[in-house]
Simulated assay, not measured.
Amino acid sequence: MRRKGLLHAELNRLVAAMGHTDTLVIADVGLPVPSGVPCVDLAVVAGLPRFNDVFDAIYRELAVERVTVAREIHARNKAMVELVGHLRTDGIVVDELAHDDFKRACASARAVIRTGETSPYANVILHAGVTF
């Protein structure tokens, strides 16, 4: 048993298997999962677990060099806009796509992690970096 950090066995395997530029999606409860893309469904009830809690846990474990979000966050999700600002301050490149293009980009992800988040456009594609 791990003492701290990410405790979910399947999420640990996913993070450990990521290579440079592989992508992992952290999604709200409503984002459609593309056919053929594995889904780690963490949603218990509406709102649980929250997007931010899952994002923070994964972000602490995965070397991230860039993220992709839907540009619709600016009109509909202040918390996601704030997250993007923090990531940019940390030196992370943030790409913004139209939501339909974002959904298409999810088709090449290693997996989608589905949260119970119900706020609009609470989705992010994490692009793995390297630690050297």
Score class of each variant (00 low, 15 high):
Val29Arg: 09
Asp22Phe: 05
Thr23Val: 09
Gly30Tyr: 02
Asp100Ile: 11
Pro38Trp: 05
Glu72Thr: 12
Asp56Ser: 08
Ala63Gly: 02
Cys106Asp: 04
Asp101Ala: 15
Ala63Asp: 14
Arg104Asn: 10
Val44Ala: 08
Gly85Pro: 04
Met80His: 04
Val69Pro: 00
Asn52His: 13
Val54Glu: 03
Leu24Ser: 00
Asp28Met: 00
Arg110Thr: 14
Ser108Gln: 12
Ala111Tyr: 08
His127Ala: 00
Asn123Thr: 09
Val29Ala: 14
Ala16Met: 09
Ile125His: 00
Ala57Glu: 13
Ala16Lys: 15
Val112Glu: 03
Lys103Gly: 01
Thr118Pro: 03
Val93Met: 08
Ile125Thr: 07
Lys103Met: 11
Pro120Arg: 12
Tyr121Thr: 07
Val45Phe: 05
Phe102Ser: 04
Tyr59Met: 08
Gly19Met: 04
Leu24Ile: 09
Asn77Val: 11
Arg13Ile: 10
Ala43Val: 06
Asn123Tyr: 04
Ser119Ile: 07
Met18Phe: 02
Arg76Glu: 12
Ala27Thr: 13
Glu96Thr: 12
Glu82Thr: 15
Gly5Val: 14
Glu61Ala: 15
Ala16Glu: 13
Ala27Cys: 05
Met18Gln: 09
Gly47Pro: 10
Gly129Arg: 10
Ile26Ala: 00
Asn52Gly: 07
Glu96Val: 08
